[in-house]
Design a protein around this nucleic acid. Structure first.
Lengths: 112, 112
DNA sequence: AACGATACCTTGAACAAAAAGGTATGTCAA
DNA sequence: TTGACATACCTTTTTGTTCAAGGTATCGTT
């Protein structure tokens, strides 16, 4: 009985992060802004969400962190490695599964 | 500072329950099976999820409970009341919002 | 010097979800 | 008649995400 499933629908923040980092390396503060933009303002995640997820993904070996000094400020750039790609792929599948399930449930008997 | 936002993506189980109960009254055990069916097997929620949600919705005044004896067994039928409809509507909007956000994020640069 | 934006971070609390168990009745086959 | 399985209710415990709220420090601009 070792493994427990993740709390149903969590992992959306994680999914978004991984998806963005798949395209190019980015740093935390940048990701906060980017998520607002790519989701068309419909999702907004604070730094209190982003940083912990970033750290936990790095600890888990899904991300590689690289410190850079830019204009006097320190940025921590993250990029996907193999494990991260696998994880992205899994989360994406899971999201698709949930999405289709909910859509099916909402669609039945449209009542219109 | 009174109000805190709901834990991002939760409420999917609740949404599914409310959606089903909008169509007809049902009892807990029935809902467990029904969810598997209407979601095309993509979502499966155990009794340990269903019952607590049902109870909390009833406590919150979103559901009305009615005990019935059928074939020697006791069933608790739940139905939506006004508050429940409002809540369903709100959860549905929220789901749509999240869904469109994630879809937008996943869609960008399809990489195909 | 003060302010806002950048950029990192942590702590605390809240709460949902999952797993696992526990009770009891009915039905059916061996 | 005993055992197994489906029905039908329920709770407790654990886990983990997410959130708000704070805290540090640098830079540019006014």
């Amino acid at each position: 009985m070792g493994q427990t499933n993740p709390p149903f629908m969590s992992g959306v923040p994680e999914l978004l992060l991984l998806r963005l980092l798949e395209q190019r390396e980015m740093y935390g503060y940048e990701l906060v802004k980017a998520i607002k933009i790519v989701t068309g303002e419909s999702i907004s995640l604070g730094e209190g969400v982003i940083y912990p997820v970033l750290h936990s993904l790095e600890r888990g070996g899904a991300l590689k962190a690289k410190r850079k000094k830019v204009a006097g400020r320190t940025r921590v750039y993250y990029s996907l490695n193999a494990k991260g790609k696998t994880r992205l792929s899994r989360l994406q599948d899971e999201w698709l599964r949930i999405q289709s399930g909910v859509t099916a449930a909402l669609g039945g008997t449209a009542d219109a």
